[in-house]
Design a protein around this nucleic acid. Structure first.
Lengths: 336, 336
DNA sequence: TATGTTTATGTTACCGATAACATTAACATA
DNA sequence: TATGTTAATGTTATCGGTAACATAAACATA
């Protein structure tokens, strides 16, 4: 491998002079600079970031830890985050936690060892506390995307859960629904908690009543909703929900599937709307009404805040950025 | 930061002994090992990969360079690749080339500086040659996913373009179509070239004729197909295609959209089928007939071959893995 | 008993860069 | 002319590990 020593020898200067040229130090004569630059080009020298990092204590590496890169919502966050990282000269490491705190823990250990400059994380839930404490203890800056953890002070970029929930409920209320169910994520995850509260508030706002039996808590990656749907359908017709709000795209799509399997027609018998668009490339004839969170911006802004933290240009107090969603009304909530 | 020197001092041994314990060297007495391990735990020591890598010449970093992480096909490749990487103790860096050779070049420079152990790449096309040469020159192992570059010898994991194309054409022929169009990617990308040839061969196999005016070359991320569709519709009715094969999900979806805008009914007037499912979470009522390539396996197998190359356990000759697709027939090709 | 072998541990140098300090030459100033 | 100042460059130590070699103690063998 070509090192600054090879360059130095060939250019007849000291390695330190080469280092100065590479780092654009002003204390270099024009003549020397040109000479060294010529040799660098000639020998096709590339600085070794590892060696540099050992001294400078920075790696220009940022880790993104998300539940699942295959979910279009997180995919788009990743895309936004990566764009910002590249702009600022950082490279992005990817980690899927699969909503499992122990897998997340494995990543945290890995990235602590890799000495990343910072971490952008959508934590698996409140159980992530110990993982985040580990980061904090080692003074690795981190920023939350999509979700936060109670008791940990850090910047957050997320969708506006309150306003988004309100929009979904208002839309359904407008369509005449009076009994609306919520199929939510686990209460151990901040956005599920927020969505639940926002849902209850939104019902009041729309002049509707809340029914405890229509408030379901499940997982964001639950893949069968047959039991839940069956329970709904077992209710007396007057007690059945006529509309369902699903707390993410995965729940939304799989609820639709369960309804279809049980021959419940959507939206005629039950309307369905959800958070996050399941389709990154909108299909010909999309069916599901969604409140699309601005995932790209969440990733981009989150990364921006993180880089500001890393580079010390962020304000001392932590920032919470809530971005508005876009309600996209489709067939699953509008009767023909 | 806690280093092996801190551990050594506290445990009353030399730093080298600590290093041996960390690396599970057998030449350590049980007593010393336990003593050192206790101090390591007590002081919460984490090895510094940068320092280690400076000596060992490995970073346990692999870079994945793909056109776009937001495209579900590549997303799923990333997911498979990441799973395999983690299993084998590697971390994955992500880079989006956006189908631009110069952006790809920027990444290659970055990862050369980061001293990654290997690169998994879906090259932007034949123009990637110089970028790949750079990698080869520096002896950074790389493996192709989805696409290869003529003149570069490396392992490849991809879908079986020939067989997949044949299936799509056979399906359309079975539906009675005699004039089938192909809207393809750029001929500078290997899989577009392969799909074109496979398409022509498949037509022959199905006893159909090829019409040059129905062979369109465009971009994999082209977003408007109005002109192409308009040209088709301007043909005399007997010369118009009755079916279109789109070379990827993006082309497929946007062709559908263009057809819709021009009030061409699908599949009645024109049927449409494409490579790669645009929907990572199949929607309630998916419309588009697709040949779904096994993206997860492409990523997983590609990463596996790469790790074998890195660790020197791969055979000298390069391997080409072609994985079969699954034809999913939906409404866009089947008249009601 | 002297020597060889094995096992466990320590010492030194180095990976490729940079920070901190040292030196030199050129020039300005008194 | 002696001294101070500035600009350009060099030297040394260090970052946190590990390879290679050195050493010491314990034991076996002739």
């Amino acid at each position: 491998m070509v090192t600054i020593y090879d360059i130095a020898k060939k250019a007849n200067v000291s390695p330190m002079t080469v280092s100065r040229v590479i780092n654009h130090s002003p204390a270099i004569s024009e003549a020397t600079r040109l000479k060294v630059e010529a040799v660098i080009r000639e020998m096709d020298y590339i600085p070794n970031k590892q060696a540099r990092g050992l001294v400078s204590k920075e790696t220009k590496l940022i880790s993104l830890v998300i539940p699942d890169i295959a979910n279009p919502f997180f995919t788009t966050i990743a895309r936004g985050a990566e764009d910002k990282a590249l702009q600022s000269g950082y490279q992005m490491l990817l980690g899927n936690s699969d909503e499992q705190t122990d897998k997340e823990c494995r990543y945290v250990d890995l990235l602590l060892s890799s000495k990343v400059d910072g971490v952008l994380i959508a934590p698996t839930g409140d159980a992530s506390l110990s993982n985040l404490r580990k980061l904090a203890k080692r003074r690795v800056p981190f920023v939350f995307v999509d979700r936060y953890v109670e008791g940990i002070d850090a910047d957050l970029a997320s969708g506006d859960n309150v306003e988004t929930t309100r929009e979904l409920v208002a839309h359904l209320a407008e369509q005449g629904h009076r009994r609306i169910a919520l199929i939510n994520g686990p209460s151990g995850i901040s956005n599920a908690r927020e969505r639940r509260q926002a849902f209850l508030d939104a019902l009041v706002l729309s002049g509707l009543e809340a029914y405890p039996e229509l408030l379901i808590e499940t997982h964001f990656r639950q893949d069968s909703f047959s039991d839940i749907v069956r329970t709904f359908m077992a209710l007396a017709p007057s007690a059945r929900p006529t509309a369902i709000v699903a707390a993410n795209n995965f729940i939304g799509v799989n609820t639709l599937r369960a309804l279809k399997e049980m021959n419940v027609t959507v939206p005629d018998e039950i309307a369905v709307a959800c958070f996050d668009d399941p389709e990154p490339i909108p299909d010909y004839n999309p069916f599901l009404t969604v409140a699309a969170q601005p995932a790209y911006d969440i990733g981009y802004m989150g990364m921006q805040m993180l880089i500001e933290r890393i580079e010390g240009t962020a304000p001392a107090r932590s920032r919470k950025i809530m971005l508005p969603s876009t309600l996209i009304v489709r067939k699953s909530t509008v009767k023909a």
